[in-house]
């Protein structure tokens, strides 16, 4: 049998420790060990973005990161996007713009969009589309997703003013 790694991380602002096998991806650790099933597996090879998390300030496909590599890292998952019972502006905008249908790509898209708006306050439509191109959605045709991100950007700008 394989020895296990002891991994110490910060997830959604809280210190989290877990044991994982060397071959387990961060996505598996989040879902199967820690019960954080909001991050989804759509392809397990880094092409769909449903497992997108923010790792030390960068968005990554958690299926392409080994659990062991997360040692010492600061991670934000979809479960950490809302502030308690208050939805993040991106989450609210997704609801108001009807930017989800089946909803399975939604966690990854919201995490990616949150990271975008933290990096750039007023991204152009082109910029939003480029940034989100790693997140596949098969239901919506992306139109309402782009509009939701635009709405969230606008609202966050208003709040910061």
């Amino acid at each position: 049998m394989h020895g296990k790694y002891h991994v110490r991380t910060t997830i959604n602002g809280e210190a989290v420790e877990f044991l994982c096998e060397p071959r387990q991806s961060l996505l598996e650790c989040l879902r199967d060990i820690l019960g954080l099933t909001g991050s989804k597996e759509g392809c397990n090879d880094g092409n769909c973005g449903a497992c997108t998390v923010i790792l030390d300030g960068r968005i990554v496909n958690s299926c392409l990161v080994l659990g062991a590599e997360a040692d010492g890292a600061d991670i934000t998952t979809i479960e950490g996007v809302a502030r308690g019972s208050r939805l993040h502006p991106v989450q609210r905008a997704f609801l108001e713009q009807a930017a989800l249908q089946c909803g399975v790509c939604t966690p990854g898209l919201i995490v990616a969009a949150k990271a975008l708006l933290e990096a750039e306050a007023q991204p152009s439509e082109e910029r939003i589309r480029f940034w989100l191109a790693n997140n596949l959605c098969r239901c919506t045709g992306y139109d309402k997703i782009v509009r939701a991100v635009q709405q969230a950007a606008h609202e966050m700008q208003e709040v910061n003013r």
Partner: peptide, 23 residues
Amino acid sequence: TRPIRHDGADKVTGRALYGADLE
């Protein structure tokens, strides 16, 4: 009209339970 969908909050917070999420 265009009300917010009933399962919306679960789906934007990652709480919605899909088949693969079952334990």
